[in-house]
Simulated assay, not measured.
Amino acid sequence: MTTQRPLALVTGSSSGIGLELAKQFALNDYDVIISGSSEKIHKATEEVKALGVNCFSHRADASTYEGVEGLWQFFLTLNRPLDAAALNVGIAIGGAFVENSLEDEFKQIAINITGTVHLAKRVVQHMVANKHGKILVTSSVSATQPTPYETVYGPSKAFGFSFAESLREELRDTGVTVTALLPGATDSDFHKNAGMSNSPIGRAKKNDKTEVARQGFEALMNDIDHVVGGDEHTKQRAVENRTTPETVKAARHAQNVRVDS
């Protein structure tokens, strides 16, 4: 008689940090549910399955109530307890706030904040009832500073960081833990998708996405409240952000992300 593997859910896992998080769970003998909005989720499924576990994929638009609720209903059809959840889906939009469309900014908020809260509500209620579970919320180093030319993104990730830390304290003694992952700039399609390829940060060398995911996974497994994902320079910058004036950080970020004309 074989023992069923624990089950993890990873959102935003078609590529990038999300896919690497899914692989971390698989390498540690978890079955995995992965979700994403594009057809790339099917290729990602095969990559995770190749690690010797079961992988269940669901394509969904995380910016809509129906998309998030549909993912949760998909999980329920498996009729299994959820042992871990990585709420990783998130997008950025580069450019000047005065020029970006309101529709795009609302979609960013819907994915980064509303969708995260929606899925967290379902996950938390399920796990607390079972008195067991681990939750990882992907925030960003951007949560520790103003982010001009990503003027909605940074605040949305600051919400995620504060949300994770707040929820962690609420769930103390329930058997459910919460960890925040704050990646620095990472070697994924993130900046390309945000329209920032032609910016200093878009062209700069970035942190390895596999290492960032590994750091997040280890922090989750070891019940650490938050971890900065990346190399020592990235971690030191996050430490320095605690004491650097907001105006200085804002000017520095603007210089790094403003797209060259």
Rank of each mutant, 00 (worst) to 15 (best):
I34S: 06
H58P: 02
N79F: 08
N79Q: 14
L21P: 04
Y30F: 15
A44E: 04
A60R: 06
I34H: 08
V48I: 15
D31R: 09
S37H: 12
E39C: 07
I34Q: 00
S38F: 06
A85I: 07
C55L: 06
S37C: 12
D61E: 11
A44G: 05
K40W: 00
G36L: 08
S63Y: 00
S37L: 10
T45E: 15
D61N: 14
N54V: 08
L21A: 06
L78F: 10
E46T: 13
L51Q: 04
G36T: 09
L27K: 15
P81N: 10
F75E: 01
V48H: 05
K49R: 15
L51H: 09
A44W: 09
E46Y: 11
P81Q: 09
A26D: 10
K49W: 02
V48P: 04
S57H: 12
S63I: 00
K23A: 11
S37P: 01
Q24M: 10
V48M: 10
Q73S: 13
E46H: 14
W72S: 09
D29T: 10
V68T: 06
R80D: 01
F25K: 02
Q24A: 11
A50N: 14
D61Y: 04
A44T: 06
K40E: 11
W72R: 04
C55V: 12
G67A: 05
